[in-house]
Design a binder for these strands. Structure first.
Lengths: 271, 271
DNA sequence: GCTAAGGCCTCCAGTAAGGGGAGAGTCAAG
DNA sequence: CTTGACTCTCCCCTTACTGGAGGCCTTAGC
């Protein structure tokens, strides 16, 4: 039987010399002959066959340990079936994981891209427009506005992949309240879902007045004032709750700079 | 400003103590205060904020190096956009890779599962049946039958994901030839594809006689003999080339045991 | 006979993101 | 003063190798 030096065998098998030495150490591929004196490794045809199997399994992404196990237990593709099924499930899990991340990335990217285009309108004018009805899931609560973070996180966890669109807050108070405000963080949904502790329903559409507010939430007062004045002038009767749509707020990752926040304030008009 | 011990901060941030120490070393998250004497780490609110960002980025699968870079360059989700896009492409590549492997796994699994059910029929009887036309890609060659391996590997590389069904060989010789046999390894295709060096065409369907052969290829002689006798008895006129469908041959991974090979020999009948 | 070039060997260090544990110092309560 | 909880540093382990240093052996060229 012809023998090949490690260099020759490397070229034949497509494995590097380093890798071959490593596989020898791991008992994954033991050379047919190791010269006593020099320690030189010599490989033969059967080594090559085994090397091909190893390469094939490696390309399927098996760990070396698994390959070792497979080589020990299997002599035929049929015997590998169980391992293949297992590996397939592993891969499908990995794909699912990555798919989920991509979805999250997409939603962040979309939000930021929208916000960017919104930012170009620097002057904020009051607009009259018509809102479409919208399906949302919300958590109504009493307390400080700044406590809404928890609610949004909870919405994120419970509704996850069903969310679609910008988060918003419904404000039920007629006057400004610091400590015991009555409000409802909510997110638009792509489809009807049930989730514990979350009220899912359709918000009515209709004619509304809207104002885009640039800057921190503490400054909402002035923008609300402008909206109310505008409504009074035209004798519009406004419908509770008002809506605050977070075009750009604290990001999913960074808190960002409140001066750069963009929020659209909306009031439906009673007709 | 309140300070927290590493244990408290660990509970607050959801990062293990080990991880916090590691991030300190990597300068990813430097405690607000390190006591000179004891070396105790003390964290503050701003550390917590940074920790939240790190966790968020880590959940998106960013490497710590990238996180470090992002933290250095970005102060806002908008700044991260480029990184997010990049990460998304990475993920999509990873998904594609895994999808490809899953497809390969599926084809191996399918082949072996089919072979297994075929194996249960132990007696091989000559059958008359009707073949549907089938789209194939093939590489016609002259030489030894045993040289077909290269051709199949080439078909695998060039047609990859378009293949669907069991590989087969078309034999154009009227008599047995050792050295200069004329044959064509080919694979069924799901759709019309073009590939250099590969002839893609539809094999005609029609009535045929078929015999399932169990065992090594060297024993084909007897099975062919049985088919030819059967045809002569019934005065069937057979059409060249004959087809050898590899129900179970050398696996994609293991060469397997030739005694377990299963091949279906088919001859179309001239009508 | 000497040197240079390959080819081969072993051993060590490093990768990413920490986990596990040893041995020693620190802190607060009983 | 002791005990138990907490913290520190340092080292080794993981995967599947890669890179490099230093050394042995053979052959070709001068």
């Amino acid at each position: 039987m012809t023998l090949y030096s490690i260099g020759e065998f490397s070229r034949m098998s497509g494995l590097t010399v380093k890798t071959l030495r490593f596989y020898h150490e791991k008992q994954l591929l033991t050379p047919a002959l190791v010269e006593q004196e020099t320690g030189y490794r010599n490989y033969d045809k059967s080594n090559l066959e085994r090397a091909h199997i190893i390469v094939a399994l490696r390309e399927l992404g098996f760990a070396l340990d698994s390959i070792l196990e497979i080589l020990a237990e299997c002599g035929d593709d049929a015997d590998v079936l169980i391992f293949l099924e297992e590996r397939k499930h592993q891969l499908q899990d990995e794909i699912r994981e990555r798919d989920d991340i991509v979805r999250v990335l997409d939603s962040i990217i979309e939000t930021e891209t929208n916000a960017r285009s919104e930012m170009t309108k620097t002057i904020s004018e009051i607009e009259e427009k018509v809102l479409a009805p919208i399906l949302v899931g919300g958590i109504r609560m009493t307390g400080r506005y700044s406590d809404c973070g928890k609610a949004f996180r909870q919405l994120g966890r419970k509704l996850g992949r069903h969310m679609g669109g910008k988060a918003m807050m419904l404000c039920y108070d007629d006057e400004y309240r610091e400590e015991d405000a009555d409000f409802e963080p909510c997110v638009p949904l792509k489809r009807e879902v049930q989730a514990e502790g979350v009220e899912v329903r359709e918000l009515p559409g209709g004619k509304c007045i809207s104002l885009v507010h640039f800057g921190p939430y503490e400054d909402f007062g002035r923008s609300y004032h402008r909206l109310l004045d505008y409504a009074k002038e035209r004798e519009f009767s406004l419908v509770n709750p008002s809506r605050e749509v977070f075009i750009k707020g604290p990001g999913m990752i960074f808190k960002g700079n409140p001066k750069k926040y963009v929020t659209e304030l909306q009031f439906l008009i009673k007709t």
